[in-house]
Design a protein around this nucleic acid. Sequence first.
DNA 1: CTGAAAGCGCTAACAT
DNA 2: ATGTTAGCGCTTTCAG
Lengths: 342, 342
Amino acid sequence: MATIKDVAREAGVSIGTVSKALNGSYTISEEQTRRVKQIAEQLGYKANARAQTFARQASRSAVFLTALPKGAAFENPHMFEIICGAESALREKGYTLALKHCDAKNICHAAKETMASKSADGILFHASVVTKELAAMLGREEIPHIIIGKPAFPNSVCWIDNDNRLSGEIAARHLAELGHTEIAFVGGLEEDKISEDRLAGVESELRSRPQPNESNLCAVYKGESTIAEGKRAGLEILALAKRPHAVICANNYLAYGCLRALQWQNVRVPDDVSLVTFDDYPFALFMNPALTTVSIDVYDMGVQAGKLLVSKIKKPGMRVQSFTTLPLLVKRQSTTEIKRCY
Amino acid sequence: MATIKDVAREAGVSIGTVSKALNGSYTISEEQTRRVKQIAEQLGYKANARAQTFARQASRSAVFLTALPKGAAFENPHMFEIICGAESALREKGYTLALKHCDAKNICHAAKETMASKSADGILFHASVVTKELAAMLGREEIPHIIIGKPAFPNSVCWIDNDNRLSGEIAARHLAELGHTEIAFVGGLEEDKISEDRLAGVESELRSRPQPNESNLCAVYKGESTIAEGKRAGLEILALAKRPHAVICANNYLAYGCLRALQWQNVRVPDDVSLVTFDDYPFALFMNPALTTVSIDVYDMGVQAGKLLVSKIKKPGMRVQSFTTLPLLVKRQSTTEIKRCY
DNA sequence: CTGAAAGCGCTAACAT
DNA sequence: ATGTTAGCGCTTTCAG
């Protein structure tokens, strides 16, 4: 295996020159740079990453710390989508991404260990394993990090998250623009922060419309995020004195249940009732009709996180927070303009 | 940051002794080892991984090379489940797992690059990006590797895969043991190797039963693996002169379509017809009734791959191949004993 | 059982 | 623009 010495000898220059030429230093003449690169190529020389890492005192690598129990990929594919996005951004910048399992109990120790042992230059955390203890430490210790997802408690860490409130607004605006006036919301339990944020967005949008009262939230259901609860909500909606023109379901499970209930009662979607939900996972795409959704570009969220992390690694002072990715309306078959019956 | 020197000075020994003590060398007295460890602890010493990697000429790390395009996590959560399993096994053995995107076009180059630059000690490949060129190279170059999934062409690489044929046998045996005699198979296209293997397993099992002809394959459908095709197949089955007692669907999409068709025609599952399929993803769990499936423990497949890879890294000579993980029957609500009507 | 010292291959500061 | 050289922090061989 050729080393930098071999290249230097073959090129008749010093190893310093080879190093600089290969790393694109401006102090080496173009001519020389070309020559060195060519010879390195001929010799099949590849810089030894282990030595580079050691000499540079930086590994150009990041680690993604999160819980990776059996079943994680099926239960939370979003996380892996984020990981893919992060890997892509990091790779583009010459960084490597390692994946490491860690639950909330050990996260603080794991993070310290990772940095103390210099195993990585920065850390990506999934919010689900971020504890107050960790947040406090991140505040003190100057560890380059990004938390993916907003921690549920006040903090001074650096996180990025999607704007669920905005997602709600977009869903509501879509329906309002289609002319729907009576809109129902089927949400999760009160503890479900995501559902609540989406609802808040819906309410805010409908309240602030150019012609308020034109579109209004005529009913709000809350229950567990299950298919069964979605069905129940769907049936209750149909029993309403004034039947809504449109339904916003806080997630796929509720949407699936609700759709089944409506169709069971021979209510046509979207002709009789429009239905919109959030995210495509797990069923929105497969349903019949395919559901109009407000989706998060989770891959992009990973990309943003990766880019941000690299910035933080390079400029440890940086103190960004709450960078937020944008939701996107994906119009499919479950929503349509209202048909007014005069 | 304390280094090994600090520990040595503090303990009044040489750095060599510290290194040996901390790495558990037998040549250091227990007393001394304890002392050194305690002092290291006091000083908050953590070995510098970058220096260790360099000195040892091994990074104790593996990389998972596969395509990670946008949407990968939703389209192929199995792969991420495998990754989680692999990470777990590697971590247990002190190895780190990096994730790296690479499509089939560049895989060969990426693999070479990874090893030549010493970025990792071994590589895990996903079969979907393995080309003949790569397989040929792996044959020549003595690169510690495991391919997850059996390559579709003859090869001398080291791979592990699930036994889809056996899965088919298990599905068929389950139905036969429940007393079903007329069994239909709804499969994917002929090109779909997985579906074909499962069918082969079904056929073989039914043929080799203690009482052959007791249970038999009365119909085989093949079509695209879509919900729509599943529905079509379901309706065709119901139109059969002799209606089957049970249906085996080669995958979730076909199963979902088929179930909907049966229920649409007021055929009760499992009371009138039992239904079994493979894997839980993406719907089997959510269907009503929840589907009995023959599942692959993909996480475990990752674990096996990780363990095997470490063995290969340590003993480069090793030439294992075709290590196969076992499928598992998950009995849920869509299958039941046949009710014979006399 | 312990210490001394030779690497590991490259980067980067400094000298020329 | 190029060469020289001092690290980077640890492992491991060899001598004692």
